[in-house]
């Protein structure tokens, strides 16, 4: 068996492999290749990337991507932690209800969510109507087509990922540890911060990495809620490719996104393996 791949394996495995290599891997490599071949010269060079990094538009978009992702990560932790805690400790009925509400949006289209947020945050939306109604503001606030709207929308999209990665670690906590701490005289707040929180750190860390990386590479929601004037990296790439036809910049942004995406996956794998090993070693 170690001398090579068996014929049956080859017959069954080849179609899917070929499909993905030809339609996904090669197009992405071709895009990378294009990003390294500037229009002016021949041969490979980093010229496209140098031009990109120098442009103010790119710097602004990169900064916006990072700001959005940091906020989304913080907000999903603030929201996800209590939800995961309640879902793991509440009665089965409450637990099911919470999980249905949290997980159902997984299947919701970005357009559907974005439309909902427009109804809520738009110029004549629910929030502005309310604030004007109680006399707090005279003119409607601009809550949509800006970075704020992207943060809200992406938090909504990525919250389930955070809840699920926290839930896996919270459910694994041995309840005897808490009972032991209690029998030794620790009060609930002490148990929570000294026993529960440290045990959930692996899930918290991997969840944060996952949410941050998905937020850095998300397109649909930032495109719909951010508008053309506040692009994050992915939206900037689309604008270069589709509206400005600046292929050398578009391919360079794609290269940056590809490296970011791969980098986060490798980091995520490394961190989660490391944490699992530490957890099993009982540290």
């Amino acid at each position: 068996m170690s001398t090579g791949v068996k014929r049956e394996t080859l017959i069954i495995g080849a179609p899917a492999s070929l499909w993905l290599v030809v339609l996904l891997v090669i197009p992405c490599l071709f895009l990378l290749f294009q990003s390294l071949t500037p229009l002016s010269g021949t041969g490979l060079s980093l010229e496209n990337y140098e031009n990109l990094v120098e442009s103010g538009t790119f710097q602004k978009a990169l900064r916006r991507s990072i700001i959005v992702s940091v906020w989304v990560t913080v907000l999903t932790v603030l929201a996800g932690y209590p939800i995961a805690l309640v879902a793991s400790r509440a009665s089965p009925r409450v637990r099911t209800l919470v999980m249905v509400i949290v997980i159902f949006p997984f299947l919701l289209s970005a357009v559907v969510r974005a439309y909902g947020w427009t109804v809520i945050l738009g110029e004549n939306g629910v929030v502005n109507d309310f604030l004007i109604g109680i006399g707090l503001i005279a003119e409607p606030l601009r809550l949509i087509q800006n970075t704020f709207a992207i943060i809200i929308g992406e938090t909504h999209v990525l919250l389930p990922y955070m809840v699920l990665s926290l839930l896996t670690v919270i459910q694994r906590i041995d309840r005897n540890l808490e009972a032991a701490a209690m029998s030794l005289g620790a009060s609930p707040p002490v148990i929570f911060f000294k026993v529960v929180v440290p045990l959930t750190l692996p899930g918290l860390l991997t969840g944060m990495l996952l949410v941050f990386s998905l937020s850095m590479t998300a397109f649909a929601t930032p495109f719909l809620l951010g508008g053309p004037r506040s692009p994050i990296l992915t939206v900037l790439m689309y604008q270069y490719a589709y509206t400005l036809f600046d292929w050398s910049k578009a391919t360079a942004v794609a290269g940056v996104l590809l490296v970011l995406g791969l980098g986060f996956v490798i980091l995520h794998r490394f961190v989660s393996r490391r944490l699992m090993r530490d957890a099993e070693a009982g540290r």
Binding site: L20, L23, C28, L31, Q34, T234, Y238, T251
Partner: peptide, 29 residues
């Protein structure tokens, strides 16, 4: 078989590559 790890990564690669980059790469081809 030997290349099983590589096969698994290949099968999961659409999750690793950002969707918008794949969309652009495919459109490019």
């Amino acid at each position: 078989f030997r290349a099983k790890g590589a096969f698994e990564i290949l099968m999961l690669s659409p999750l690793i590559i950002p969707g918008v980059v794949f969309g652009f790469a495919f459109f490019n081809v």
